[in-house]
Design a protein around this nucleic acid. Structure first.
Lengths: 244, 244
DNA sequence: CATGCGGGAAATGTATACATTTGCTGTATA
DNA sequence: TATACAGCAAATGTATACATTTCCCGCATG
């Protein structure tokens, strides 16, 4: 019955550090010192080291020139590029799925998700339960991209999506109120339908184009949120990720 | 004058391990044991651990379910997808560079490389010095993709290119004699010219298409080399990377 | 004022002992 | 025969002491 206790300290240290970085507690460029962190977390240097190593794998940290690690800093342009990259990779996954063709039994589940997403729109109002909408949205994209059945591509896609602010859920993680409005959600849902339809119809090129355009919504929301070059680092938590 | 001696043991252990994996000394799926490796390399477990962690960052190792690491295994399909992915990313970099436009002073250096590549073809014969040809080829792609000036995209591209057999140089690394023939080199060089021309002319879509097609040469060479489903694991060193 | 050269504090790199977990193996039992 | 469980061996996880390197600071020197 006992939960697996593997890597207890490393696991918790990784979690603590990740949260702190994502929420802006550790601005980009900040160098992390093993001793300081080990004292703060009341553990030895070893699991701290291990945690930093894992966060470097995730792309949240980078190895410092003289050794050790520092928080990776993302410029506004970096975030825009990450979103573009996500669109490109999701587009590739969709295209490959379409070119390969997908068996019918996997399609029904995705269709159900799409119907549930529709259900989130009560009449013409915005979704009341935004959390479950986000969850369904993530599920749709996950299920759809998996259709390409390419571990290599899916792996890189997950990497890119985990980059700060590259995926819609990152906004929730970073506790940033984005300028996501009702209209953009309706457009997004229409794109979901079209994207799915294109994959089913084996129209690879069209699927790729839609997926790319779909990511542009996130980009527009980002630019809307941070309009006028306001970094907002001092007002909105999590925003310290954007430095230069 | 003294060379930087940072991470001496970790560095050498990482190198030794990487070489062994790339050359097929450690087939995909092989679990790596810290004690065994530390005894073999005559060092303690710590630098071995560190080395494995770095190789996991590179994508050559993956964390095993119960802890520890194992050699990542690549199927033939995985390698094909990695090449496809490289084409997609190089295409994206080229497109962004074209859309953004590049200043003239950076173009001359690339043009010189292209001329040098032309020089490798003595008349209509195959390049005599294949090593310098490969070097120039790598330099061209490096310089061209850098034109997009996107650290995020360039970083992911480097990751993908470092995957076994995803980049042309991987064949040299893995000591696999590929079926690269003279004709494919001529086609490739023509694509180099066209790709460069498209970027300069700010024809983003064309540049992206050419970059993708260019990667397909590597795919064709791969399929030619391993035709008839022969894995060749017992005849060609480095081939143990392809297991299933 | 710029520059190069010690010197020492502080950081990471390394070794090693100890703790914990995992996974196997053998045995007893239904 | 299949299965559950106890116990052991071997692996990784963790703590800590020690080694080495880096980096900063102050001083001497051109």
């Amino acid at each position: 019955m006992a939960e697996s206790k593997t890597n207890n300290l490393t696991r918790s240290a990784t979690y603590e550090l990740r949260q702190k970085i994502i929420h802006g507690g550790l601005p980009g460029g900040t160098r992390l010192f093993e001793v300081a962190l080990s004292e703060e977390l009341q553990i030895s240097r070893t699991p701290v080291r291990e945690a930093m190593s894992r966060l470097a794998e995730e792309g949240l940290l980078e190895r410092a020139p003289g050794g050790g690690f520092q928080v990776r800093s993302f410029t506004f342009r970096d975030v825009v590029d990450a979103i573009e990259l996500r669109g490109v990779l999701e587009g590739t996954a969709a295209r490959l799925a379409a070119e390969k063709g997908v068996s019918g039994d996997k399609l029904q589940g995705i269709n159900d998700i799409l119907d549930s997403l529709d259900g989130c729109f009560q009449g013409f109002d915005a979704p009341t339960d935004f959390d479950s909408y986000s969850e369904l949205n993530a599920a749709f994209h996950s299920r759809l991209t998996e259709l390409c059945e390419s571990p290599v591509i899916l792996r890189e896609l997950e990497r890119v999506k985990s980059l700060p602010f590259a995926s819609p859920s990152a906004f929730v993680l970073g506790q940033v109120e984005t300028a996501i409005n009702h209209r953009s959600l309706i457009v997004a849902q229409a794109q979901h339908r079209a994207l799915f339809q294109a994959v089913v119809a084996r129209e690879g090129s069209r699927a790729e184009a839609i997926a790319r355009e779909h990511a542009r919504i996130a980009r527009a929301n980002l630019e809307e949120t941070f309009r006028d070059g306001a970094t907002g680092a001092d007002t909105v938590p999590g925003l310290a990720l954007i430095v230069r």
